[in-house]
Design a protein around this nucleic acid. Structure first.
Lengths: 187, 187
DNA sequence: CACCTAAACGCAAAGGATTTGCGTTTAACT
DNA sequence: AGTTAAACGCAAATCCTTTGCGTTTAGGTG
């Protein structure tokens, strides 16, 4: 949904986009992710391949577009009653989601689309938004809080680094330690 | 170089591999990275496309193979006389290298090769090795040292996260702060 | 409400890329 | 020197990608 909406005349943008996204989800669920092609997606979505080539350029771009939508959080972080609890619970949830086979593939799809780095930025923005909410709740409780960048560097970056480069979901103890370290020495 | 060496009969493995790697470097330097194709690389390397398809499967795998070799460090981290100095200097160097346009592309190539996650692991191993050396030198000086995983989480992960997801090379002040925080509270 | 315009789409042909079977060459081992 | 199996070159078949052109659609206008 990064493309500018057609403010000018023609364009059935929305309808095609929706059916293509749905087609990709269906095909990825049915077959694996490997071997997915643009003609295949076009057939499933009921459009011609040239439409997809014109709109997205190539398969990686299309997959990245779908991936960003799927990475968009559907629910805000759970309120556990404390900053530490919120962070631990939410970081665990993100780790589970991103370390799963489909989750890791989504991140790869986003990072592989080298034509539009804005998509990777968008994914980080989802995390920032969630962290911002957690921080606001903590401030409302009167707890001392770190800033968002500290949590990005101290908690999210290590989790994502390990998932991406080591194929390794950090275990609960490590996540707890990352959170503890990020909260260390607050006023 | 991940493939098992041909311990059995045939195979001119090494010769083809070398000329293909060289061809990719030459083509990426001449034209951009975009628009690179397997037939193009095959022509430059003086082999037939089918050879490359049989050995690597597809373009992302081939590019990932070349990228890992190019990410292999050629010199050990400089000895500045102190652990903090070594880490700061080396982290700056890695940040510069990985945040450059070709550097970022190499990392993307490595992460995009979803058939062989071992390559991403290998890249992390390069960093671990360098960090291990820095730590050994510090221990020889009698300095207290963190363990490698602490530095991976505290210094390398944030740098790489920001380069990959934000397209943003952390500035010198942030790198210094990351190092300082990772060294905080050592025995 | 009817008309106008430009973007998006479908179709189909042309141009490349990918796959695959088969014969040949190469390197290690005897 | 002979043997063997992997790797390679070649070429045909298949599939994907690109592109020109006519048609449809959505938004703007009189």
């Amino acid at each position: 949904m990064i493309r500018k909406e057609p403010l000018r005349p023609g364009g059935r943008s929305a309808r095609v986009q929706a059916s293509v996204h749905q087609a990709v989800r269906a095909l990825q669920a049915r077959h694996g992710r490997a071997g997915l092609t643009i003609p295949m997606i076009a057939a499933e979505a009921g459009v011609t391949p040239s439409t997809l080539y014109r709109r997205w350029g190539d398969l990686p771009e299309l997959l990245a577009d779908v991936a960003v939508e799927r990475l968009r959080p559907d629910t805000p972080p759970r309120d556990t009653g404390s900053l530490r609890g919120d962070l631990e619970h939410w970081a665990e949830q993100i780790a589970d989601e991103y370390a799963s086979v489909p989750g890791r593939a989504l991140i790869q799809d986003v990072l592989a689309a080298n034509a539009t780095p804005e998509r990777a930025y968008q994914c980080c923005a989802f995390l920032r938004e969630a962290l911002g909410l957690v921080i606001l709740r903590a401030q409302a409780r009167g707890e001392p809080t770190p800033d968002v960048e500290m949590l990005i560097d101290g908690v999210m970056a290590p989790i994502l680094y390990r998932i991406l480069f080591l194929g390794d979901r950090p275990d609960k103890a490590r996540v707890k330690a990352l959170v503890a370290r990020a909260l260390q020495g607050l006023a």
